[in-house]
Structures are given as C-alpha cells and as structure tokens.
Design a protein around this nucleic acid. Structure first.
Lengths: 231, 231
DNA sequence: TAAATTAATTGACATATATCAACTATGCCG
DNA sequence: CGGCATAGTTGATATATGTCAATTAATTTA
C-alpha cells in the first residue's frame, strides 16, 4: 500500500464525484487540501468492515468490490465500485464503524476524504446536501430492487440480473473483461459457485453469452433480459 | 378515505418526526401550513407503487406495511411503519414515481408533506439536511443487513429475524398483537406461508414462542437470538 | 345467527439448489 | 521452464423449500 499523490487537484480530476460541481472554488479547495491518496494492488483491502469509519472513499482509477463479510467466510457483494462515485457506508452517518469492506479488483488509485469535511459541506451548502441525498436515494432504490429480485427470482434470473448489471452499470458494453471469479459472481447473485458455472454453460450453449478466458460477451441480450424478467 | 385534520399543529404533534426539531418556528410553521392529513381504514392503500410521487408520508397514528409489488401478485415487505418516522421512497429524490406501496395494518392517521418543502428545507437548513441524511443512512444499513440475512440464512434464521424485528423495532416488547398474517410474515422473511406456519409451530413446541389467536409472545428470547445468529 | 369468505393448518410431493468429491485447466513463482 | 496453488468444471447426492390439495378454524357480512 504505497502512498503517493497522482491527482493534481480535485478541480482538475476527471474522475471527480459529480456532486463536487455544486461546490465553490473555495469549498473544493478545502476538499482538495484535506484529502489523501493511496494506491492499491489487485486484491488488496481498501476498507475493512468493522474498522473505525472516518473517511469517504473515491476511486480515481480502477475497480473495487464492496461487500459484507459474514461468519464462516461467507460474503455478499453489495456493488462494484468505479470512479466517479462516492463510497460512504451508512456508518458515515450512523455508527462510527465501517459496515462493509472494500477490496481492489484491479490496481486502484483512491482518494479518502474525511467525513467531517463532507458533513460540514452538507450543512453549509444546500445544493451539495441535496446532491448527496440524491446519490444515497439512488443507492437505496437499488437495494430495494435487489431485495426483491434476490428473494423472488430463481438462479437463472438472478444470474441474468448480475450479467446485465455488469454490462449496463459497470462496463457500459455487452462485451467486457470478467474480473470476477465464479465465486464472486455467486456472491452477487446469491448462489454457489458451482451453480454459476452450470448456468453460465447453459447460457453459453443457448447462445445467450459466450466467453473464453476472461472475456465475456452477451450475444443475445434480448433473451437475457427476458430470463431476468421471467425470474 | 375521509379527510380531516386531527392534529393541531406540527409543533404540538407528539408523533412528529424527530428531525423537525432542527427547524425554526418559522420553518415548522411552513411545514404545518403545507401538510395535509387523511385517515385510512385497515387494509386501505395509502401510497400506491408506480403512482406519481409528490409527498413524504408521516403516520401520526397506526401502523402500515411498506412493500414492493412484483409481477403475479408477489410482494415483498420492506418494513413496517410506525409514527415518528419519515416515509419517503427513493422516488422522492431520484425518479418521480413511488417505488413502493404503503397500506394500513390498523386504522391510520397520516400526514402528507410535499417533497418540494422538504427539499427546500434540506437546502436551506444544514442541520435538517444532516438529520435527513442520518435517517436515510440508517435505512440503508438496515437494507444491507437484510440483503445479507435473506440471502445467507435458512428459513428458521430468517423467521427468527422477523420475530425479533417485530419485538425490538416495532413493538418494543416480547409480547404483542400479531397484526401480520402468515402470508405477510412470509413476505418479510421471504418464504411460503406454509413454511411460516410449520416453523412457528416448531418454535412453539420448542418453547421459544407461544401464540393463541392474534397474541404472540417470545418466551425464550435467548434461543430465538441464537437461531437468528446461527442462520 | 348462518352463510360466505378468508386465513391457518397439515400432509404428500416435486424440485431447485447446495454440498461434496474428484478432476482439469490456468496462472504464478522460484 | 516446471511445479504448486488457485480457479474452473463436472457428476452424484442430499436437503431445504415451494407447490398443490384438502381440511379446519376464524372472521366478516348479509
């Protein structure tokens, strides 16, 4: 975990959180002067569940998984994080501990901004607070959809959801490098890794997806969507 | 759905949202003058999923269930609502439609406050905005726990969770009137109503709970907690 | 109060899905 | 480059859970 500052300023950062647009030059300067940056290698833990929560996380480069660690090594992936998004667990406003872990799926460049700064900005800049509320609301809506889908769909539907999530929300493309293991796909779709393997093969034989090595391509999106909808 | 105003003012309302404490007299007056009130009978729909979302809901009396309606009559109960809490779907800040339905479990007295008022207050009153963020964060944390529990626990664990949720968060007592049908318990714990019946009986035979008619009592909380934890 | 709904219960059965064990492919490190 | 560790794959099996059908209990309505 080597420390270095690769980003000049928040103002010039191309991966900055869109809500920072609501800040004045003065306010953004405050964020910039109080952030700190770090690099992580693939697989490294960026935030550890249970540890004291004091900073929000922003990725400036790379991808990470955000997950809940349960007993007996069981874990559940909440979402995949990319640059441009604020990663602040509920712990930021409620308790004082991280309610989830974050670990790097690729080499990651990350910025940490202390909660106190963000809270101060939310108190003093109404537009910023509103943007924050919008962000958190959008997450909340996702959680609700997920709660419904995970409890009401069967494996095929849940895996279809997962593949569509990756294509639509993460890669914005129907063809992408699959950074997640079968195990991790299972931790998103809530199923055993063996089941992921079997259903991926089934989809492949049905011409819905194709994959070789780590490259995955959705070849029949329509069918995948209908599997997702049928549950 | 008869309309009447039973609450004098927000200032004197004993069921008011705690975050209203952060408002000035002037601000609270604005809320008071722009709210409207309505009564609902048991079973009546208070908010309908998919309809245009324009108001946040506050119960001043009674209980309601907040749930997602899926295809084929399937539904999933997100939470049980009581007075003192703001009920604003994510739709309030993101889309413009209600993302869930709310229906009365008992006779309900409810207040509606337009989003525009709440957004305005959030923009102009930092403390209020912060309180709102705290509230939403707490909900988010619940959703995350629920995502993990529903996907990783077996039926007994999920039903134990549900009964503890009712006792701890809703009734603050180990003995209470069970307003929910077996079907509805299943829509919280994500299982068939028949399974709810069978496991309730099992718990009853094991001396963990007892029930006759609509009265339910947790008689061995420790065991119920351990079932919840073991999953 | 009786009839008519609706909810709860029970048993039998089907099946979706996890688990276990073995094996193979792949990638990484010395 | 070869060997070790990790990830992927496959088949066999166990089981948790849903579904269906029938019955009883409880509640509402006429």
């Amino acid at each position: 975990m080597a420390y270095k500052n690769n980003i000049d300023t928040c103002a010039s950062c191309t991966a900055a959180w869109k809500n920072y647009h609501h800040l004045s030059g003065q306010e953004l300067k405050m964020v910039n002067e109080n952030r700190f940056e770090a690099s992580f290698r693939s697989g490294e833990v960026i935030v550890k569940q249970g540890s004291p929560a004091s900073n929000a996380l922003f990725l400036s480069r790379g991808m990470a998984k955000v997950y809940i660690e349960g007993p007996e090594g069981k874990s559940f992936i909440l979402f995949i994080a990319r640059p441009g998004r604020m990663i602040m667990g509920p712990g930021g406003f409620t308790g004082s501990r991280n309610t989830y872990s974050v670990s790097a799926l690729t080499p990651v460049q990350a910025c940490f901004v202390n909660f106190s700064i963000l809270k101060h900005l939310a108190r003093t800049n109404g537009k910023f607070a509103e943007g924050m509320l919008e962000d958190i609301s959008a997450e909340s809506l996702n959680d609700h959809r997920r709660l419904f889908n995970l409890t009401h769909k069967k494996m095929r539907g849940r895996l279809a959801d997962t593949l569509l999530y990756l294509a639509d929300d993460i890669y914005s493309s129907d063809e992408f490098d699959m950074l997640l293991s079968r195990q991790e796909l299972g931790e998103i779709a809530s199923m055993a890794k063996e089941s992921v393997v079997r259903i991926m093969k089934e989809f492949s034989l049905a011409g819905i997806i194709s994959y070789r090595s780590s490259r995955l391509k959705i070849t029949d999106r329509q069918k995948l969507v209908s599997i997702s909808e049928e549950g």
